[in-house]
Protein backbone atom coordinates (compact mmCIF):
# COMPACT_ATOMS: atom_id res chain seq x y z
CA UNK A 1 0.00 0.00 0.00
CA UNK A 2 2.85 2.25 0.67
CA UNK A 3 3.87 1.80 -2.94
CA UNK A 4 0.61 3.19 -4.11
CA UNK A 5 1.29 6.24 -2.07
CA UNK A 6 2.99 7.80 -5.08
CA UNK A 7 -0.24 8.44 -6.90
CA UNK A 8 -2.34 9.41 -3.94
CA UNK A 9 -1.25 10.53 -0.57
CA UNK A 10 -4.21 8.89 1.16
CA UNK A 11 -3.83 5.23 2.18
CA UNK A 12 -6.76 2.92 2.75
CA UNK A 13 -7.07 2.10 6.42
CA UNK A 14 -7.92 -1.43 7.47
CA UNK A 15 -11.65 -2.05 7.50
CA UNK A 16 -12.92 -2.04 11.03
CA UNK A 17 -14.04 -5.49 12.06
CA UNK A 18 -15.38 -4.36 15.37
CA UNK A 19 -18.98 -4.94 14.27
CA UNK A 20 -18.29 -8.40 12.87
CA UNK A 21 -19.11 -10.18 16.14
CA UNK A 22 -22.40 -8.31 16.30
CA UNK A 23 -23.33 -9.42 12.83
CA UNK A 24 -22.36 -13.01 13.51
CA UNK A 25 -24.25 -13.00 16.79
CA UNK A 26 -27.28 -11.71 14.95
CA UNK A 27 -27.13 -14.62 12.52
CA UNK A 28 -26.53 -16.98 15.41
CA UNK A 29 -29.62 -15.81 17.26
CA UNK A 30 -31.67 -16.10 14.10
CA UNK A 31 -30.69 -19.73 13.74
CA UNK A 32 -31.17 -20.48 17.41
CA UNK A 33 -34.71 -19.14 17.29
CA UNK A 34 -35.87 -20.49 13.95
CA UNK A 35 -34.48 -24.02 14.06
CA UNK A 36 -35.06 -26.99 16.27
CA UNK A 37 -32.61 -29.46 17.71
CA UNK A 38 -32.28 -32.63 15.68
CA UNK A 39 -34.12 -35.28 17.67
CA UNK A 40 -32.15 -38.40 16.94
CA UNK A 41 -29.52 -39.77 14.65
CA UNK A 42 -31.43 -41.76 12.06
CA UNK A 43 -30.40 -45.35 11.45
CA UNK A 44 -32.85 -45.77 8.61
CA UNK A 45 -33.20 -44.20 5.20
CA UNK A 46 -35.53 -41.29 5.68
CA UNK A 47 -34.70 -38.06 3.97
CA UNK A 48 -37.19 -35.26 3.88
CA UNK A 49 -38.22 -36.25 0.38
CA UNK A 50 -38.94 -39.82 1.52
CA UNK A 51 -41.96 -38.73 3.50
CA UNK A 52 -45.30 -38.86 1.70
CA UNK A 53 -46.86 -35.63 0.54
CA UNK A 54 -50.30 -34.37 1.47
CA UNK A 55 -52.29 -31.18 1.23
CA UNK A 56 -54.44 -31.38 4.35
CA UNK A 57 -51.61 -31.28 6.84
CA UNK A 58 -51.48 -29.67 10.23
CA UNK A 59 -48.50 -28.45 12.18
CA UNK A 60 -47.44 -30.56 15.12
CA UNK A 61 -47.73 -28.42 18.17
CA UNK A 62 -46.18 -28.88 21.60
CA UNK A 63 -43.10 -30.75 20.46
CA UNK A 64 -42.32 -31.81 24.00
CA UNK A 65 -45.44 -33.98 23.97
CA UNK A 66 -44.58 -35.80 20.78
CA UNK A 67 -42.98 -39.23 20.66
CA UNK A 68 -41.55 -40.38 17.39
CA UNK A 69 -41.59 -43.75 15.68
CA UNK A 70 -39.45 -44.09 12.58
CA UNK A 71 -39.93 -46.80 10.01
CA UNK A 72 -37.84 -47.47 6.94
CA UNK A 73 -35.08 -49.47 5.34
CA UNK A 74 -31.89 -49.63 7.45
CA UNK A 75 -29.04 -47.46 6.19
CA UNK A 76 -26.41 -49.04 3.98
CA UNK A 77 -23.96 -49.70 6.82
CA UNK A 78 -26.57 -51.54 8.91
CA UNK A 79 -27.97 -53.65 6.10
CA UNK A 80 -25.50 -56.45 6.78
CA UNK A 81 -26.78 -56.99 10.29
CA UNK A 82 -30.39 -55.95 9.93
CA UNK A 83 -31.24 -56.78 6.33
CA UNK A 84 -33.08 -54.58 3.87
CA UNK A 85 -36.61 -55.06 5.15
CA UNK A 86 -38.14 -51.98 6.79
CA UNK A 87 -37.29 -51.72 10.48
CA UNK A 88 -38.67 -49.70 13.35
CA UNK A 89 -36.47 -47.18 15.09
CA UNK A 90 -37.30 -45.88 18.55
CA UNK A 91 -35.06 -43.23 20.10
CA UNK A 92 -31.66 -44.08 18.66
CA UNK A 93 -31.78 -47.82 18.20
CA UNK A 94 -33.60 -50.41 16.17
CA UNK A 95 -36.56 -51.97 17.89
CA UNK A 96 -39.07 -54.74 17.50
CA UNK A 97 -42.82 -54.40 17.39
CA UNK A 98 -43.13 -55.59 20.97
CA UNK A 99 -40.88 -52.75 22.19
CA UNK A 100 -43.40 -50.10 21.20
CA UNK A 101 -45.64 -50.74 24.18
CA UNK A 102 -42.74 -50.25 26.61
CA UNK A 103 -41.57 -47.20 24.70
CA UNK A 104 -44.95 -45.49 24.96
CA UNK A 105 -45.14 -46.26 28.68
CA UNK A 106 -41.64 -44.87 29.20
CA UNK A 107 -42.49 -41.73 27.24
CA UNK A 108 -45.63 -41.34 29.30
CA UNK A 109 -43.77 -41.73 32.59
CA UNK A 110 -41.49 -38.84 31.65
CA UNK A 111 -44.35 -36.40 31.24
CA UNK A 112 -46.58 -34.70 33.72
CA UNK A 113 -49.76 -36.62 34.38
CA UNK A 114 -51.95 -33.75 33.26
CA UNK A 115 -50.23 -33.66 29.90
CA UNK A 116 -50.62 -37.34 29.10
CA UNK A 117 -53.97 -36.99 27.25
CA UNK A 118 -52.37 -34.51 24.86
CA UNK A 119 -49.48 -36.72 23.91
CA UNK A 120 -49.16 -37.49 20.24
CA UNK A 121 -47.26 -40.20 18.48
CA UNK A 122 -45.72 -39.12 15.23
CA UNK A 123 -45.19 -41.81 12.64
CA UNK A 124 -42.33 -40.95 10.34
CA UNK A 125 -42.49 -43.57 7.68
CA UNK A 126 -40.80 -43.97 4.33
CA UNK A 127 -43.44 -43.75 1.62
CA UNK A 128 -42.43 -47.05 0.01
CA UNK A 129 -42.98 -49.03 3.19
CA UNK A 130 -45.70 -51.65 3.03
CA UNK A 131 -48.74 -51.05 5.20
CA UNK A 132 -48.40 -54.39 7.00
CA UNK A 133 -45.83 -53.11 9.46
CA UNK A 134 -47.73 -49.84 9.94
CA UNK A 135 -50.90 -51.72 10.76
CA UNK A 136 -49.02 -53.77 13.35
CA UNK A 137 -47.63 -50.58 14.86
CA UNK A 138 -51.10 -49.10 14.99
CA UNK A 139 -52.36 -52.16 16.82
CA UNK A 140 -49.53 -51.84 19.34
CA UNK A 141 -50.36 -48.18 19.86
CA UNK A 142 -53.97 -49.06 20.44
CA UNK A 143 -52.89 -51.60 23.04
CA UNK A 144 -50.87 -48.90 24.78
CA UNK A 145 -53.88 -46.58 24.31
CA UNK A 146 -51.76 -43.96 22.60
CA UNK A 147 -54.59 -43.06 20.28
CA UNK A 148 -53.53 -39.66 19.03
CA UNK A 149 -51.30 -40.21 16.07
CA UNK A 150 -49.88 -38.07 13.35
CA UNK A 151 -48.86 -39.41 9.97
CA UNK A 152 -45.89 -37.28 9.18
CA UNK A 153 -46.17 -35.79 5.70
CA UNK A 154 -44.75 -32.92 3.73
CA UNK A 155 -46.76 -30.13 2.20
CA UNK A 156 -47.68 -31.02 -1.36
CA UNK A 157 -46.42 -28.16 -3.49
CA UNK A 158 -48.73 -29.11 -6.31
CA UNK A 159 -46.30 -30.67 -8.73
Amino acid sequence: MAVMGKKKKKTLGAISTASLPDIVFMILFFFMVSTTMREVELLIELKGSDLPTATEIKKLEKKSLVSYIYVGKPLQQYQKTYGTEPKIQLNSSFAELSDIYEYILAERAERDEAEVPFMTTSLKVHKDTKMGIITDIKQELRKASALKINYSARQDMGY
Binding site: E56, I57, K58, K59, L60, V66, S145, N150, Y151, A153
Partner: peptide, 11 residues
Protein backbone atom coordinates in the same frame (compact mmCIF):
# COMPACT_ATOMS: atom_id res chain seq x y z
CA UNK B 1 -43.14 -31.22 11.71
CA UNK B 2 -46.33 -31.49 9.77
CA UNK B 3 -48.67 -34.35 9.14
CA UNK B 4 -52.18 -35.70 9.06
CA UNK B 5 -53.75 -35.91 12.50
CA UNK B 6 -55.69 -39.04 13.25
CA UNK B 7 -57.40 -40.64 16.20
CA UNK B 8 -57.20 -44.40 16.53
CA UNK B 9 -60.20 -46.30 17.85
CA UNK B 10 -59.68 -47.70 21.34
CA UNK B 11 -59.44 -51.45 21.74
Amino acid sequence: DTGIQRQLPPI
